Simulated assay, not measured.
Amino acid sequence: MTTFSPTNEQQIALAAAEAGEMLKIKAYAGAGKTSTLELIAGRFAHRRGSYRAGEFGSGAARRGHTAERCAG
């Protein structure tokens, strides 16, 4: 996992996840969806979770994430 400074949008998504909200993140390729997922998963590494991806031949798959494992 890479270290980076989250964008405002990623900080909003993280805050929503911390508040227990359900998230739906839609964006174009290269917009940072996988990085956002890794940011959230890192914060909740002690908990189980799942996510769904529309086109799973993406960055998440290249980084070793599967539909069953979201915290790496």
Rank of each mutant, 00 (worst) to 15 (best):
G32I: 04
A27E: 00
H46N: 13
A27Y: 00
G49F: 10
G42W: 14
R69E: 02
Y51N: 08
A17I: 04
C70G: 13
R48W: 07
P6T: 15
M22A: 10
S58V: 00
A15N: 13
T36M: 07
G49S: 11
A53C: 05
C70R: 11
L37H: 01
S35Q: 14
T34L: 02
I25E: 00
M22S: 00
T2H: 11
G64M: 01
T3A: 13
A31G: 08
H65E: 06
Y28N: 09
R62T: 03
T2V: 14
E38P: 08
F4K: 15
S35Y: 03
G49N: 02
E21Y: 04
P6R: 14
T36V: 04
R62L: 00
R52L: 15
A71I: 12
T7D: 10
R47A: 02
G20S: 14
N8T: 11
G30M: 02
F4I: 10
G20V: 01
G59M: 05
A71R: 15
L39V: 08
P6S: 14
A53V: 09
I40A: 04
L39M: 10
T7F: 02
G49E: 03
Q11M: 09
L37A: 10
K26P: 00
L39C: 06
L23I: 04
N8C: 04
M22F: 02
L23N: 11
M1Y: 09
A53D: 04
K26S: 03
L39H: 06
A15V: 10
R52P: 00
E21Q: 12
K26N: 06
R48H: 10
R43K: 15
A13G: 00
A31W: 07
Y28S: 14
R47V: 09
A16S: 13
T66Y: 03
A45R: 07
Q11Y: 06
Y51K: 05
G30R: 03
F56M: 13
F4G: 15
K33E: 05
R43F: 05
R52D: 06
G72A: 10
G59F: 00
G57K: 13
E9C: 01
M1E: 13
A19D: 11
L14M: 11
F4N: 11
G72K: 12
A29E: 06
I40W: 07
A13S: 07
A60P: 04
I40S: 03
A71D: 13
R47N: 08
A41D: 10
A53T: 11
K26D: 09
G72S: 11
E18A: 13
T36S: 06
Y51D: 05
E55R: 12
T2A: 05
S50T: 03
K24W: 01
A41H: 07
F56T: 04
F44G: 08
S50C: 11
G20K: 09
F56A: 06
Y51Q: 14
R48I: 04
G30A: 09
A71S: 12
A29H: 05
R48F: 03
A17Y: 02
G30I: 05
I25F: 01
R48N: 13
R47Q: 03
A19W: 01
N8V: 15
G64K: 09
H46D: 15
H46V: 11
A16R: 12
A71P: 14
S50R: 05
N8Y: 13
G32Y: 00
F4Q: 15
R47P: 00
G72H: 14
A71T: 08
Y51M: 03
H46F: 04
